[in-house]
Amino acid sequence: MSTQGQPWMISVFLLAVFLTGWHLFTLRPAFDPKGKTDEQLQLMEFNGDIVRTPEGGYAWNPEKEKVKGVPGPLMVFDKARMELAEAFVKKGTNDHGIAYLVVYTVSRFAAGFLAASVVAIMLGVLLGLNKALFQAVNPFIQILKPISPLAWMPLLLYTVKDPKWTAVLVVFMAAIWPTLATTAFGVTSLRKEYLHVAAILQLSWFKRLYKVILPGAAPTIVNGLRISFGSALVAVVPAEMLLGELGVGYLSWIEWNNLDIAGVIFAILVVGVVGVILDSGFNKLAGLVTYQE
């Protein structure tokens, strides 16, 4: 059979290979009491390393297994099933179901990203239309752009004094620079015939902006938004971890504090799924505003 036409089959195959390999690599041999005295076994049972099975033998304590070595795919699957079953349950202040955590993260991300996009596009258009201003401000953008958004966090936390808003602002700082720089570039490189037509038609400043400049620069702006989007998505997880704000990034950290490695792996997977969902939504929106020359 030709494999060229069936990429999904290869995907499934690769996944199966990965899961099998993971499973075999993390498999631990069953407890073997041979060569151990009764006293040793009693001590191990007392320590909680092993438990008595109903048949009278001994087995590794499943509770302790969780923190020994790397958990296998089955344990992660068990953990995921458990978490998803309680997706909408709030057990306590810091123990909200996974659905809540996803909503917290997505809304935190959306707030920071949207605010940054609006500010960046407005500033970018302003800079793009005013060459002298662009040249004057560009050095500052170039210095601020490579700073990791997390580097701002202590300062933001000190100034806004609220971890909730600090997390949103970290996302904001991560998302603003790429969009700002590309919007300004997109507006300056807008073909000048479009502006000539707008000038001849005597369009008002506002009409010129939303009928000609913004749609004309839209493909470039969307490219900037895409870079911002990725950088904001990367920033939201550590922001939650460091600030202790409930969310999927925080989930990963709290499971680490619980020494639940399966939980950590589950949290990583959730971060990936959330990223894919946000990204496909973004691509749909981007498709609406781009055009072909």
Binding site: Y194, V197, A199
Partner: peptide, 26 residues
């Protein structure tokens, strides 16, 4: 520039994000 002197451009200068109708309607 003004509406009393309209240019037909060598490279057309149509807005590629607008339809034919919208270009003229603008």
């Amino acid at each position: 520039p003004g509406l009393d002197r309209m240019v037909v451009f060598q490279n057309f200068a149509l807005m590629p994000w607008m339809t034919v109708f919208d270009n003229i309607r603008l």
